[in-house]
Nucleic acid binder design. Structure first.
Lengths: 163, 163
DNA sequence: CACGATAACTTGACGCTTCAACTCAGACCG
DNA sequence: CGGTCTGAGTTGAAGCGTCAAGTTATCGTG
């Protein structure tokens, strides 16, 4: 609603922007497509399962899991219900503090992640890692860091400590 | 479902990947948040209106508009119906070929874009352009180009020719 | 000129995300 | 202890996107 003359984008800036938007739209779609095709799950569901698989005891509080997957608690809750319905996770109140809910990967859930991970990693490699030189990969890390910083402090940035 | 030992990501690759995922999730959310807050429209709706505003006669075929906005025709059709309901666009069959539908920005729609654009551009600047050095901006263009290429030929890449 | 393609939308149903309540457990306070 | 507050999680409704059919207009072909 600001009507002061804005600083429009010059040609190069616009190209950067358009290329970025295109990648922004297509990349998540490509990831979802691969996972949907090969494992019949969404990228977000995969993230949830993968997050649990990397946690001690395959268990995480809902809020920590939401934080890891950068999702709202509500979104995670709905998804957790679906995943529970498929037998891949269970939810129980935290015995040490009933306010928390602990999500745990079942054996079937672990099998699912194990079966799905290689194909997913291969796709990430194909689309991103192997498409870039080592230098570009480093540049992308720095660029992402800066953009993430510009968006504010939400994700605890340095090394999400999950693997 | 491939069970051959995959090439896992090493530490640096994983960091690149995680940073990228974070940006991928948060950046579109940030754009939508700004537009929703200041103009009460989604980024996709903005793209549609902006696409029309840049076209000759403020008019485009639905299929060309879908192509520009990298959306399915179905998605665009639903959105167009909503935008038409708000009085921002109109749809008419192409007089020269009844199979096409021409979407045209109304005066009210043009006002909406004009009022919304400066704030949106400012946000793009704040989050992306001004967060990066000129060199990084160039790197990002090249990185996006490569990743977009890896995802296949869908969008007619070189200079979308809309402005 | 009829008649089967084909392509450009449009529509309806379904699934997922968001948003705004709502529930519930423990903390804090008198 | 009872009362209130806070924060975690859940739920239901509403909105948007996708998918699979449907429509309709033109093209080709005989």
């Amino acid at each position: 609603m600001n009507t002061d003359e804005p600083r429009w984008l010059d040609d190069e800036e616009q190209q950067t922007w358009l290329a970025m938007v295109s990648m922004l739209v297509r990349f998540p779609a490509a990831l979802d497509a691969q996972l949907q095709r090969d494992a019949n799950i969404s990228h977000f569901e995969y993230q949830v399962l993968a997050g649990l698989s990397m946690a001690p005891e395959c268990t995480l509080r809902m809020s920590d899991l939401a934080d890891f997957a950068e999702a709202s608690l509500s979104r995670l809750s709905h998804t957790a219900k679906r995943l529970e319905g498929k037998g891949w996770i269970t939810r129980t109140p935290d015995p040490t503090d009933g306010r928390f809910t602990l999500a745990t990967l079942t054996d079937a859930g672990l099998d699912k992640v194990t079966a799905t991970a290689p194909g997913h990693v291969a796709e990430v490699r194909r689309l991103l890692i192997d498409s870039l030189t080592k230098a570009q990969s480093k540049q992308l890390r720095e660029i992402s860091r800066r953009v993430n910083d510009a968006m504010g402090p939400r994700p605890d940035y340095p090394s999400v400590r999950t693997a």
